[in-house]
Amino acid sequence: MIDQFTIRALAPQEALGQVCALSDVLIDCVEGGASVSFMLPLSRDRADAFWHGVAEGAIAGERILLVAQDRTSGQVVGTVQVILKQPENQPHRADIAKMLVHRRFRKHGIGAALMLAAEAAARKAGKTVLVLDTVTGGDAERLYERVGWTKSGIIPNYALWPQGGFCDTTVFYKLLAAA
């Protein structure tokens, strides 16, 4: 099924043109209960403002924005970011953030493909250590383990679910061979 989708990095200026499509994915994920920094209800304006900021970060060279698109319709069905900008004593590290797949398109290998593409983009950018965090016990935690990430630990009460109430987070890392 993954062959029905294309995974690619958006050109920095192109990211601005995809704000609505990216907001659709984010809103769907939050409405589905994903703890990804936003509370319910997530308005279109808040989602668009977030993605405008991401696009500006891509334009500034601070992050790489990848998308999964349906080959037929061109619809954006998933996304992930590689955050390149790090403190000066961590030039070899990047964070992986906002790995999101629209609920209608899950269970097709898109999340794994996005993660592999993010790793390749990070490697190409000269990064050798990747870090991310995710809700403990969720589908994403199992995905990260399947694609070879190492669990570092769990932080209790790290964030809130979109509807309220605390959730724990699991921190993962992955070491990459130098490009």
Rank of each mutant, 00 (worst) to 15 (best):
E56F: 08
T136K: 01
F166A: 06
R71P: 04
L66M: 02
V171Y: 14
S152T: 00
A159L: 13
Y173P: 00
G53P: 01
S23G: 09
H92M: 02
M1T: 04
Y144P: 02
D95T: 06
F50G: 00
T169R: 04
D95N: 05
H108W: 15
N89M: 10
L65S: 12
M115H: 04
T72L: 12
I83M: 02
S23E: 10
A178W: 00
S37I: 13
R63C: 06
L84I: 03
F172W: 07
F5S: 06
A113N: 09
Y144F: 11
L26W: 11
L65N: 11
K85D: 05
A55V: 04
E141I: 08
A177P: 06
S73Y: 00
A177F: 10
G138C: 10
I2F: 10
P87L: 09
V131Q: 15
T6N: 07
D48W: 14
A47G: 12
M99I: 15
R106I: 14
A117F: 00
F50D: 07
V101Y: 10
L116Q: 13
G33I: 14
Q90D: 09
D24T: 10
G126K: 03
A178E: 13
A112T: 09
E31N: 15
A68Y: 10
Q4L: 14
D48V: 00
A121Y: 03
V19R: 04
H92Q: 11
L114I: 13
C167S: 01
G126H: 06
V77S: 01
K151T: 06
Q86M: 11
S23P: 02
M99F: 09
V25D: 00
C167E: 02
G138V: 03
Q163K: 14
D48N: 12
Y144W: 05
M39E: 15
L84N: 00
K98N: 12
R46K: 15
V76I: 15
T150K: 08
C29A: 14
A122S: 05
I155S: 07
P12R: 03
